[in-house]
Every structure is written in structure tokens, then in C-alpha cells.
């Protein structure tokens, strides 16, 4: 008695016959069929998988570049007035749209009328900034 037939010996004949009939209906997957299916599946899905991976890679790159650009804009703040702009606006005493000696002159006239209105050092600093040629090369 083999292991295959052993369980059937204890079953009624009718059941054994039906079970054997069902076994004959099962599809047999031989190694050759298995390899063929595997090869076909690889051919079908391999290009799609690489395209998906490439697209995902580009998305990562674009997201990283956008993040760097956002950080750069956040640091540089090109659209908001910087300290120099704010200082320049504050120094435009006569509202002429630019800072020149007439602004320093306006401060000096104000001080001549009321010495507490503005300090001489403020006037001197403004005149110095007006005639400044900019920092020396390498200066901080």
C-alpha cells in the first residue's frame, strides 16, 4: 500500500471515484510552461517598471530642485525690502525718491532750528553714505 492510495482505502468507492475524476481535471504546470510564463511576464512588465522608476526619479529631482529654490528665495528674499532699502527709504528726508546731499541739508536745517531734533552724528553718517564709493575689495 502506497501513501497515495492509503487514504482512499478507507473511503467509499463512490467518493474515491469522484476525487480521482477531479484530479484528472487539474492543469499540470510543467517546468517548461512555468519558464515560458515567467519569460512572458518579464517581457510584459519590465519596460513599464523601468519607465515608472525613471518617472519617480525625475519627480524626486524636481522636488529637490524646487525645495532648493524655495530655500534660496526664503534666504535672499528678493521681493521684500532689505536693510539697505529700508535705510535708503528712511534717509530720503525730502521724499525726492533718492538720497542725496539735499536730504543731509534738510537734516542740518532741522538741527539748526532745534538741536535736539537730530544729532550731528546722524547728519555726518548720512553725508558719509552719500559720498561713499563702496567698501574696499575684500572688506567685510
Amino acid at each position: 500500500m502506497t501513501q497515495e492510495t492509503e487514504p482512499f482505502d478507507q473511503l467509499p468507492e463512490a467518493i474515491v471515484a469522484r476525487l480521482k475524476a477531479r484530479d484528472r481535471g487539474l492543469a499540470l504546470l510543467t517546468p517548461a510552461v512555468d519558464r515560458a510564463v515567467e519569460t512572458a511576464a518579464r517581457e510584459q512588465f519590465a519596460p513599464r517598471r523601468s519607465r515608472t522608476a525613471a518617472a519617480r526619479g525625475w519627480r524626486y529631482g524636481a522636488a529637490a530642485a524646487a525645495a532648493v529654490a524655495l530655500i534660496a528665495v526664503f534666504i535672499a528674499q528678493p521681493f521684500s525690502p532689505n536693510d539697505a532699502d529700508r535705510r535708503r527709504l528712511a534717509d530720503d528726508i525730502d521724499d525726492s525718491g533718492r538720497v542725496d546731499v539735499l536730504d543731509a541739508f534738510a537734516l542740518a536745517r532741522s538741527r539748526a532750528g532745534d538741536p535736539d531734533a537730530v544729532s550731528q552724528s546722524r547728519i555726518d553718517a548720512l553725508v558719509a553714505s552719500i559720498v561713499s564709493l563702496g567698501p574696499a575689495e575684500g572688506a567685510l
Binding site: 542725496d100 546731499v101 543731509a104 541739508f105 542740518a108 553725508v127 558719509a128 552719500i130 559720498v131 561713499s132 564709493l133 563702496g134 574696499a136 575689495e137
Partner: peptide
Amino acid sequence: PHYDLDAVAQGRAERIIVADY
């Protein structure tokens, strides 16, 4: 008159802005 004395002293005044009141 007022001008950038440092730039002149350092020999880098290729131009000059002069002002007075």
C-alpha cells in the same frame, strides 16, 4: 567738502562723489 576719504587714501578712487552744504 565731503568725499570718500578712505577710498582716496587707499588709492581706489577711480571716480569721486563730492558734496557740501
